[in-house]
């Protein structure tokens, strides 16, 4: 009886999850396999013929290899932003956790403000123009760092609280200067939370649509999310290509998910609960 109930519930859960969560992804993949005419029907049907490769070639080569450029841009954006985020956030998290001063309250206020307040878009554009970084990839990199810092700092601070202060002191007695204490003793110990940070922030920045839309206009330096947006209007009639594009840009998060599922879940829950 209870066996039936237990498996009944399991089977039901699997069926519902398949309909709700898997079919949309199956739909994307099947669309990517179809040719233009069949894709036009927008139905959930088995692809007639194998058109994936031609679709990929067409999507990638369109508009002067725009998707390839976009992938390169997005990679540079993600790698550079996350690198800076990790180092700068870890430095702040370290000193913030270790050194109690009367400024800590203010700093914490700014961190919480950063998590809550929506960025002021047009003034930021105005500022970026002022310093000559509007529409430039490194300008966007700095923006992503600025927006990502509060979350990363909270993650680091929580983790650093678990590292005994004795370790810093042992290093100080051993002759380490502040720089050595951080980069040779603390930073290596932060590796688990650094992995979490890298994974969570990479996904967020790679998937970011709004900020590139505002701060990096123009097709020349589009990011992958913008290609989708641009193609959406262009490929009004070429759903096969649109979905091939969606499938292609879903691959990086999928890879991250397969390899770092645990860290990403840990990071998002830990950061969220503490924030």
């Amino acid at each position: 009886m209870s066996l039936v109930r237990k498996y009944g519930l399991s089977v039901l859960a699997i069926l519902v999850s398949a309909v709700v969560f898997l079919i949309p992804f199956a739909f994307i993949i099947m669309m990517a396999f179809k040719d233009r005419t069949q894709a036009q029907l927008l139905d959930f049907s088995w692809p007639q013929g194998f058109h994936l490769w031609t679709n990929i070639v067409e999507v990638v080569t369109t508009r002067n290899w725009m998707l390839l450029t976009a992938f390169i841009n997005s990679s540079i954006l993600t790698v550079a932003s996350v690198t800076l985020l990790v180092i700068f956030a870890a430095m702040v998290g370290f000193v913030l956790q270790r050194r109690k001063t009367r400024f800590n309250g203010l700093i914490e206020f700014f961190i919480l403000a950063g998590l809550m307040i929506p960025p002021a878009v047009v003034p930021t554009i105005w500022l970026l123009q002022g310093i000559g970084l509007f529409g430039k990839l490194h300008g966007l990199i700095l923006v992503e760092v600025a927006y990502g810092l509060p979350f990363s700092i909270l993650l680091y601070r929580a983790f650093i609280a678990t590292i005994p202060r004795e370790l810093d002191e042992a290093a100080i007695i051993d002759g380490a200067r502040p720089f050595d204490v951080f980069f040779r003793v603390i930073l290596p110990l932060l590796w688990p939370v650094t992995v979490t940070n890298i994974v969570v922030q990479s996904v967020a920045i790679f998937n970011d649509f709004t900020n590139p839309l505002y701060y990096l206009p123009g097709n020349a330096n589009a990011t992958v999310q913008l290609t989708l947006y641009n193609f959406q209007s262009q490929f009004n009639t070429s759903y096969n290509l649109l979905f091939t594009n969606i499938a292609l840009i879903t691959i990086p998060p999928l890879v991250v998910f397969l390899f770092f599922n645990r860290q990403i879940v840990a990071g998002m829950t830990a950061g969220a609960v503490k924030g």
Binding site: P164, E166, L167, E169, A170, A171, V185, W191
Partner: peptide
């Protein structure tokens, strides 16, 4: 130190 404070890495 009391808790040894060895560098774990």
């Amino acid at each position: 130190f009391q808790n040894y404070a060895l560098y774990p890495h």
